[in-house]
């Protein structure tokens, strides 16, 4: 049986792990390779590194990070942030990354998805989508209890630039072009610890036939279970609940297993 994955996410800035709250307020949480190795030993199924500054400050250090990680990790890892071209992708995969995550560059040039899928295979092309709820006309903030939002909008450059793209439609288009996985971040929930955006996750999971990794908002272990059970997520991504030692990966997995969710223990 295919197991549900728990994926710690390491946001990396200048070679150090940081975690933003709503992409703004960030705190230092340590060395990426050291932290990722610890997660490997604790039972993480995968690790995602996102260079949060790379979209506007191009750097080659993520290739170096990939090389370093490949030496220390025995689980798959994904690198994203500031990847702009097929050549960037080739460099990261060549340095040992298992997958790359494309965000802004794919929105600006969707052809990049097709080109990378053709050249390297869909299995290593992850499309990251930063989605934000769009309020409905005449009010309503779109909370789970309130009025349903009409849609979610995809954002560029780490959540700095609105695109006007419908996030669910964009996910479907990306998959049609060859994306092998969707890493879906709710900008409304990211850093809040209020739980994942279940409606967003459900909408995207229903629109694509590739795995959806839910991201943004994990505050408790129950949040992880609910986005798998009722959000349809194939994997859950979380950062701060693991980085600051609130829960270990093993505790999270034991909790999910007790809830009847198949995980690797």
């Amino acid at each position: 049986m295919l197991l549900k994955r728990i994926i710690p996410c390491l946001d990396v800035d200048r070679g150090r792990v940081v975690k933003g709250t709503n992409f703004v307020d960030i705190r230092d949480a340590g060395d990426p390779v050291e932290l990722a190795s610890r997660y490997d030993r604790e039972g993480a199924d995968e690790v995602v590194f996102l260079d949060i500054t790379a979209s506007h400050e191009k750097r080659d250090t993520i290739v170096e990070l990939a090389r370093h990680c490949a030496e220390e990790l025995f689980i798959p890892f994904t690198i994203g942030g500031g990847i702009r071209s097929e050549d960037d992708v080739r460099a990261l995969l060549g340095a040992g990354a298992d997958k790359v995550s494309l965000n802004s560059a794919a929105i600006k040039d969707p052809g990049l998805i097709a080109a990378c899928a053709r050249r390297f295979g869909s299995q290593c092309v992850v499309i990251a989508i930063d989605a934000k709820r769009v309020g409905i006309p005449g009010g309503g903030t779109g909370s789970d209890e309130g009025a349903r939002p009409l849609r979610w909008e995809a954002y560029l450059n780490g959540g700095r630039v609105a695109t006007g793209l419908d996030a669910v439609e964009w996910a479907a288009q990306a998959v049609a072009l060859g994306a092998g996985e969707i890493l879906l971040t709710s900008m409304d929930r990211d850093g809040t610890k209020d739980g994942y955006d279940l409606e967003l996750t459900r909408a995207v999971a229903a629109a694509v036939n590739v795995p959806v990794i839910a991201s943004g908002g994990a505050g408790t272990l129950e949040h992880l279970a609910e986005v798998i059970h009722s959000g349809g997520a194939d994997a859950v991504l979380a950062a701060s609940i693991f980085h600051y030692g609130e829960y270990t990966i093993r505790e999270a997995k034991e909790y999910l297993a007790a809830k009847g969710i198949p995980v690797r223990l």
């Binding site: 049986m1 295919l2 197991l3 199924d45 092998g180 996985e181 795995p211």
Partner: peptide, 10 residues
């Protein structure tokens, strides 16, 4: 089934 088969399986 979803192809490729990606992930942890027994």
């Amino acid at each position: 089934v979803k192809v490729p088969h990606i992930g942890w399986n027994q």
